[in-house]
Amino acid sequence: MLEFDIVPAERRPAAERAALLVDPGFGRVFTDHMVTIRYAEGEGWHDARLVPFGPLSLSPATAALHYSQELFEGLKAYALPDESGEVGSGRGRGGVGLFRPDANARRLNATAERLAMPQLPEELFLKAVRTLVEADRDWVPAGEGQSLYIRPFMIATDPFLGVRPSSEYLFAVIASPSGAYFSGGAKPVTVWISQDYSRAAPGGTGHVKAAANYAVSLRAQAQAQDAGCDQTVFLDAVEHRWIEESGSMNLFFVYGSPDAPVLVTPPLNGSILPGVTRDSVITLARHRGWTVHERPYSVDEWSADATGGELLETFACGTGVVITSIGRARSRDGEFEIGGAAEGPVTASIRDALVGIQRGRAEDPFGWSVRA
C-alpha cells in the first residue's frame, strides 16, 4: 500500500468557507485539497500525494486530450448525526460516512479495463478517498440535502500522438460540497425523449463511466433544454424504441399499488450504466418484498400506460440526483403526464429509505454506509 506525501494547502478562512456552504449549488465549489497518484509502465502506481487543489500541468500532446482515454466516478460523503441525533460539520461528533465506496472502486476498474487503462487496487482507491475526506472534513456540509460530492478520475498522460494505450496515467480525487442536483428539490422534473441522438450502442462504452459518454449526450441535453425540459431520456441505438437511461440517471417505472408496488427498470444490456443507486433501489425494494422486473421497456408502453393510468409513477436515480420523480415526458410527437405530475408515495418512500441509510438516520442492514 502506498503512503501519501502530504503537502498542506493554505486553508480558506472559516467565515469564507461557511458562506460558500450556505448554498454551494452542485459542482461549483471545491475543497482545499486534492489527491494525485501516478502510474507508469514498468513502475506501476507511485507518487501518491495530498496536495493543494489547483491546476494540472499537462503537455499539449497529452493522450487524454486527443483520444479520450479518461474515466471518472462519483460518490458522496455525509455528515452523520451524533448520539443526540444532531448533525454538525464533518468534524462534528457524528463523523462522516461514505456510501458504498467499494462499489465505485469496482466500477472504476471495470471502466479502466474497457478503456485499456491500468487497474487501481480497490484498497488504494478507498485510501485515496479517505485521505481527501480526512483532510477536508470541514467542507462536509451539514445542511438538509447537502453532501460532499467526491469525484475520482483517471486520465492518460503520455505526451504522444498515436492511437494506442498510454504508458502513463494520472489518478486524482477532488471534492465539491453540493446541494440538490435539480434546483426544484423534490418537485417532479420534465424529460425530453430524444429521437435524434443515441447515448450508446451495443459493444460500445455505455456500461462504463467513460468521459466521452457524457460529451455525446450534451447536444441532446441542449435540445431538451430548448424544449423546456430538465433532462433527456435516451432510446436504444438499434430500434430507437426501447428506453435505456436518462443522461446520468437510471429509470424506474412503478405499477401495482402503493402498498404492493411493482417496479420495472431496463436491464443492463451492455449500453446502460450499472448505477450504484440503481442497484441500491433494487436491493431496497426486494428487501421490502416488492417485485422488481428488469426487462425491456418501450417508449410506447410508457406513453400508453401513463395515459391510461396503469403506470403510477416514474422516477430516476443516480449519485447526484439520488431519487427524483418524473412528472412529464415530452418529444416531437407530443407530451404525456405521469401520475398527475406529482411525486408519488413509492418514489418518496424509496428515497426516504435510501437517504436515511446514507445520512445515518436509519438502520443499514446491508452495510452500505462506512466511516470515512
Rank of each mutant, 00 (worst) to 15 (best):
A201H: 15
Y297W: 07
R219H: 08
D236F: 01
D158I: 01
G185N: 07
R199A: 11
V163E: 14
R11H: 11
F125I: 13
Y67E: 08
A128G: 03
D236K: 05
G367Y: 01
S194H: 09
F53E: 11
W302K: 03
G228L: 05
P165N: 08
E122S: 12
F4L: 12
R288C: 12
L218E: 09
T314N: 11
Q69W: 00
D32E: 10
D300K: 09
T319G: 08
V238Y: 09
L311T: 09
R332G: 09
A220K: 01
R38L: 06
I272A: 00
F336V: 02
L273C: 05
T265P: 08
P274L: 04
P152Y: 02
G74C: 08
A306L: 07
A105V: 01
E10T: 15
G270N: 14
N250L: 09
Q69K: 13
V370S: 04
K76R: 11
R28G: 10
D364G: 06
M249S: 00
T283Y: 09
D300E: 15
T314H: 07
D138S: 12
T131V: 11
S57T: 15
F125M: 13
G327Q: 04
W368V: 04
D5M: 11
L273F: 03
D23Y: 13
A227P: 08
V129M: 06
L251M: 14
M117E: 06
G95W: 04
D364S: 09
E244I: 03
P81S: 04
I174K: 08
D47L: 04
G327T: 01
D236I: 00
W302L: 14
F53L: 14
R164Q: 15
P159S: 04
P365S: 08
A212E: 07
W139N: 12
I150P: 03
A135E: 12
P52E: 10
R49Q: 14
R219M: 12
R151A: 05
G327H: 02
V264H: 01
I6N: 13
L80Y: 08
G54L: 12
D364E: 14
T347W: 06
E168C: 10
V51F: 07
P266V: 01
P159F: 00
T324K: 03
S166H: 03
L80W: 01
V281H: 03
R351K: 14
T307D: 06
P24H: 01
G185Q: 06
V173R: 05
S325V: 01
A15D: 15
V276D: 00
V355W: 00
D32M: 08
E113R: 13
D352A: 14
F30W: 10
H33L: 10
D23G: 11
V276A: 00
R49V: 01
R286C: 15
F99Y: 15
I282R: 06
V322N: 05
Y197N: 15
P52Q: 13
A63H: 13
E43N: 14
L124Y: 07
